[in-house]
Write a protein that binds this DNA or RNA. Structure first.
Lengths: 225, 225
DNA sequence: TTACCTATAATCCATTTGGATTAGATAGAA
DNA sequence: TTCTATCTAATCCAAATGGATTATAGGTAA
């Protein structure tokens, strides 16, 4: 089955050029094109799940909604999709922002057909595309200078569950903070939505809050998740 | 002139394997091998300057002195040398420490000869190596999950409001993420709760979400707040 | 065994939210 | 001026949520 690819670019000519370049690669099929971030998100919403692209080539600069915002929303709404930023020149600053927003690679638009195809394939298989020296250098500097920490803590014995949440409750809290409905949580955990709700209300009681939004705010601020 | 490379690994077999892999690449010459960090530093001290390696492939775990300490000292004593960490498995924590200590690249030991050679070459030419997909993935996750910022804000350049939220909408998003009800938001801003709701729904439309919880999740994860 | 906790599930009811739509006021751009 | 964007506000309706309560089953501790 070919890798399903979406192209998001405001210039029709650019979409065509890239599409053409990929035409001779049978393992890749362009199944969706959009002319800006908003258009992309709207089309995604009305798409049957089996048509969901695996890799999205996303222009950085576009009217209505640019590529960074589109990736930010897209990587939240469709976390399995891999986003590759398209740039004309090496716009490191914005590429970096895009990575932070959830992009996993980038491509220069005038890349050869073979390179584009290879990046898409690699992206699909390994989860990341090649990182240019410039971006890698930036990331390294960042890590060397900024006090970024790995989310370790593996050393601590059993992490005491905050607020005495049970394992199940913690599990449900994780889904809760993703913005899921009772229905969806129940579905995810193979339990009745009523039960999911009961758990959520129990969590509220333990956290001393009384709404999803409050629970999320607390969970995020106190790092419960 | 070939790139001069050092290999530091406590297992003789590992040193041999890597050396062999590089044997067929005439542009690379292994000029120094050491079996631990201490050994490496001592050999470096007694080396004529023209024999100084340009790139050092450094194992992480070694007796006497491990790779992290060796890089820390080495990058101070010989700042022009590029240090590439060798890992068998994905040891995030220590790779990370090595970066902070001054390493500029990472390689999985079972990487192909071609990939190792390419990393060394790029390391020599550009200062950083194309990071292997596994490590790149980790770096990306790191950058994505930690709210790190690029060094400065590049002069002025008015910061673009994310998702084209208006000032009012941004103001309301701030209250939203505190877990407030429409009623409370309206009260806070001295407007009708209906108006507050309208704003909130407008925000949803711009973020392409359709619930408070989703908006909060997106806002928190993408650092809109 | 009894008592307790947890996970499961359901029901009733009031409140809140989300979606769609309409509309007035104002300010700025074309 | 006309067009457009923004902020304001309201209404109707359906869906989701929050609160309270009841109930069953399994496991654990006293």
């Amino acid at each position: 089955m070919p890798i399903q690819v979406a192209i998001v670019d405001d210039k029709a000519s650019n979409r065509l050029i890239i599409k053409d370049k990929l035409l001779h690669h049978p393992q890749i099929r362009v199944t969706l094109t959009a002319e800006n971030g908003k258009d992309f998100l709207e089309q995604m919403k009305n798409l049957s799940p089996d048509k969901t692209p695996e890799v999205v080539l996303m222009d950085l600069e576009m009217p209505e909604m640019d590529g960074i915002d589109a990736v930010a929303a897209g990587s939240y709404l469709y976390p399995t999709v891999k986003y590759v930023m398209l740039t004309i020149f090496d716009d490191e600053e914005r590429i970096f922002k895009a990575i932070k927003a959830g992009a996993f690679g980038y491509l220069l638009k005038d890349e050869s057909a073979e390179n584009i195809a290879e990046v898409i394939t690699q992206m699909y298989e390994t989860g990341v595309g090649p990182i240019s020296p410039g971006i890698a250098y930036k990331m390294l500097q960042l890590v060397q200078n900024n006090s970024v920490e790995l989310s370790q803590k593996k050393s601590e014995e059993k992490e005491k569950t905050p607020f005495n949440l049970t394992d199940r409750e913690q599990e449900i809290l994780k889904l809760l903070v993703k913005g899921m409905l009772y229905k969806e949580i129940g579905n995810e955990l193979q339990i009745s939505p009523n039960t999911a709700k009961k758990h959520v209300l129990n969590i509220y009681a333990k956290l001393h809050v009384n709404s999803k939004a409050q629970a999320l705010a607390l969970a995020y601020e106190k790092g419960l998740i």
